[in-house]
């Protein structure tokens, strides 16, 4: 029963991944216009018929759609994501170069918003209905409705340009030969503003989930049992309420990990941060379709992996979800 359920879950993920890959394959082919324009850019009109045929053959466009599809799958399996026409480089190299920076941003932002959101949510639930809770709730709802590009630009102009506390862009000071602690500090000071922007936008979601989950658990019968045992208010809140409220919060956090990748597009653009999000922006503005296609796939896989993470985490927190 247990292994059966687990293998069917794995099968689901494989199926979803296959659908995503197929859509990714279809998308550029379903777009209006000449595929050569996608591959060779706007100057396709200047090519001679022979040159066109050559470009098409190089991209495999002269073969049947089935052949193209199996070739695409084969390339993916061998880790080949295609070739960038703008940068004249394999896309895999470009992505691997950018991925660590995006991990740094998205990971730190998630960690920060998890800690702050859970702590504030628990605090709010503890002071439920009192001024402290209501004030915090109002602030969070307001924060939740701010657009990320606006907040990011505000940070850049205030902290970076006016106060000069942090660099306004980039991930590391260019052409410097920093080492050890200096290098870490340099990277950290570049990351502060983008991480803060990303976090401030995901704290409200975590906070609201935690607060609501705690409030609903507070009404449960077993909380009354805990009180009848003589457990202190703090013990009730932490040992009994928070422990139960963590299950939905952990799910939200894991799912947000996937979304955080998407959130980096705007923030990395505003802060000129050399991550995957900015790569997408560059690819879109430069009409580098193969790069867009490859980065979309990476984002899809990230969302799938974070779903998988949520599936793995949940039973660790809630024993009822463990198959017996």
């Amino acid at each position: 029963m247990r292994t059966e359920r687990r293998s069917s879950r794995v099968l689901q993920y494989v199926l979803v991944l296959l659908i995503a890959i197929t859509l990714n394959f279809m998308l550029p082919r379903m777009m209006p216009g000449n595929p050569l324009a996608l591959l060779a850019g706007a100057d396709v009109g200047l090519l001679s018929p022979e040159q066109r045929a050559e470009v098409a053959a190089r991209a495999g466009l002269d073969r049947s759609i089935v052949d193209q599809y199996t070739a695409y799958l084969g390339d993916l399996a061998s880790g080949d994501l295609g070739f960038s026409y703008r940068q004249k480089r394999p896309i895999v190299d470009m992505i691997l170069e950018r991925l660590p920076w995006t991990f740094l941003l998205a990971g730190s932002a998630l960690l920060f918003s998890a800690v702050v959101g859970v702590a504030l949510g628990a605090f709010s639930a503890w002071r439920r209905g009192r001024p402290a809770d209501l004030t915090l709730l109002g602030v969070m709802i307001a924060l939740d409705s701010l657009p990320s590009f606006w907040l990011g630009m505000l940070f850049v102009s205030f902290f970076a340009v006016q106060l000069g506390f942090f660099p306004s862009g980039g991930a590391i000071t260019a052409a410097s030969s920093l080492e050890g602690v200096d290098l870490v500090l340099n990277i950290a000071s570049h990351a502060v503003l983008p991480v803060l922007t990303l976090s401030l936008l995901s704290v409200p979601g975590v906070y609201l989930t935690m607060r609501y989950a705690m409030l609903s658990v507070l009404g449960e019968d077993f909380i009354r049992t805990a009180r009848a045992k003589g457990v202190s208010e703090r013990g009730v809140l932490f040992r009994h309420v928070a422990r139960n409220a963590l299950a939905p919060v952990a799910t939200v956090l894991a799912l947000r990990l996937g979304l955080a990748f998407g959130g980096t597009v705007v923030v990395e653009t505003v802060f000129s941060y050399p991550g995957l999000g900015r790569l997408i922006f560059e690819a879109v503005s430069g009409r580098d379709y193969p790069v867009m296609q490859a980065t979309f796939l990476v984002f899809t896989v990230a969302v799938l992996l974070s779903n998988l993470l949520a599936d793995v985490l949940y039973p660790l927190i809630d024993p009822r979800a463990r198959a017996t």
Binding site: D221, F222, T225, A228, G230, V231, R239, H240
Partner: peptide, 30 residues
């Protein structure tokens, strides 16, 4: 006094125990 000098049993045992803690721990807590 609660749980010490005065113990209480509630109506619905299906919802009166904390689902995420082990049975032994819930008794031991008191």
């Amino acid at each position: 006094r609660r749980g010490g000098r005065i113990g209480m049993i509630f109506q619905d045992p299906m919802t009166s125990l904390n689902p995420v803690h082990r049975i032994g721990d819930q008794i031991a807590e008191s």
